[in-house]
């Protein structure tokens, strides 16, 4: 046998030791077979979470719709859950959600995309490497801190200029939410813009176009689906944001378009009702789930759309 030739070298014969150990290996053989199944079980926890979310939200929401007709819920403009004759129209909440989201996007959209243009097209490597992480700090600040900032600083600031604005209003949290979303849009749009191949830019530069013209006529059109995808994700984030609006926009369930007034969003409603310790089984308890299911569908659609757009963008390059 080939193995016996080097016995002269050393007392240790590794080959024999390995052969020896191998006999005891049945246990590790078992591990080897068991591991993939075990990992599959762990991986399915994420699936279970999704299933859990869907089942919890929708079974309880269905209970709710047995009491309050689904039609009434989605067309009702009056929300009076605590009243003697409660009414459960979700439109005030959807309205509040959309208005705060709209205000936020009015800030985050333009500022985010202009930051992205600067970072991707104008800034030098060194400047970008300083500015980008700084901007991302904004995304790491907990939303409760933004809520505090909106309530104790931005609202008083707005009121000192426009005294007719309420102590709680939708404008201030909307603006602050916008600031919070800037880094998200800036960073995702920048990724999209910087992955536009340089050859396309060079084509425009060679014709004597300025950077500005190249950006607007070549880079942005080429990166459009990526940029839109970042907007959609920003919207989804704003729709789901909770603490800023809960703190700074109060809890009046007005159905109005006056941004100086207090309005409630879907998320803030969930906080209010669940903190109020609604007894399980009551209509108001079930309404939590109907609102949450609505919110869930809103954000899910947005996320699917965003992913579709960004995949389309990736396919193009």
């Amino acid at each position: 046998m080939a193995g016996n030739s080097d016995t002269n070298k050393n007392a240790v014969n590794v080959r024999e030791m390995i052969a020896e150990k191998k006999k005891k290996k049945n246990l590790s053989n078992f591990t080897e077979k068991f591991i993939p199944t075990f990992l599959l079980l762990i991986a399915s926890i994420s699936l279970l979470t999704t299933v859990g979310i869907i089942i919890t939200l929708f079974t309880e929401a269905i209970e709710f719709f047995k009491i309050v007709p689904i039609w009434e819920f989605f067309t009702g403009t009056v929300l009076r859950p605590m009243s003697q004759n409660p009414e459960f129209g979700v439109l005030p909440l959807i309205n509040g959600t959309l208005i705060s989201t709209f205000i936020a996007m009015l800030v985050a959209g333009p500022v985010g995309i202009m930051s992205a243009i600067y970072l991707s097209e104008y800034a030098s490597d060194r400047v970008r490497r300083v500015l980008k992480p700084l901007l991302e700090i904004l995304a790491g600040i907990p939303t409760i801190v933004y809520g505090f900032f909106a309530f104790t600083f931005v609202t008083p600031l707005i009121r000192s200029i426009f005294p007719e604005v309420g102590a709680t209003n939708i404008l201030s949290p909307g603006l602050v939410m916008g600031v919070m979303i800037i880094p998200m849009i800036a960073s995702l749009s920048e990724d999209a813009m910087s992955s536009v191949p340089n050859s396309m830019r060079e084509g425009a530069f060679a014709l004597g176009a300025t950077k500005l013209e190249t950006t607007f006529k070549v880079v942005i059109p080429a990166a459009l689906s990526g940029i839109i995808s970042s907007f959609v994700l920003g919207i989804s984030r704003a729709i789901g944001e909770t603490m800023i609006v809960t703190i700074a926009s109060g809890s009046s369930k007005n159905f109005t378009f006056d941004i100086t007034q207090s309005m409630q969003t879907m998320t803030a409603y969930i906080v209010e009702v669940s903190s109020g310790d609604a007894p399980a089984g009551s209509t108001i308890y079930y309404s939590l789930y109907a609102v949450a299911a609505t919110l869930f569908i809103f954000t899910l659609l947005m996320n699917i759309l965003a992913r579709y757009l960004s995949r389309k963008f990736r396919e193009e390059y």
Binding site: K9, N10, V12, V14, M17, I18, K21, K24
Partner: peptide, 19 residues
């Protein structure tokens, strides 16, 4: 290599490494 095949004795490992 020796370790994954079950050899754990430090002295033997030292010897194998040097060799």
């Amino acid at each position: 290599g020796p370790k994954i095949h079950g050899i754990k004795n430090k002295k033997i490992l030292d010897e194998i490494v040097e060799k």
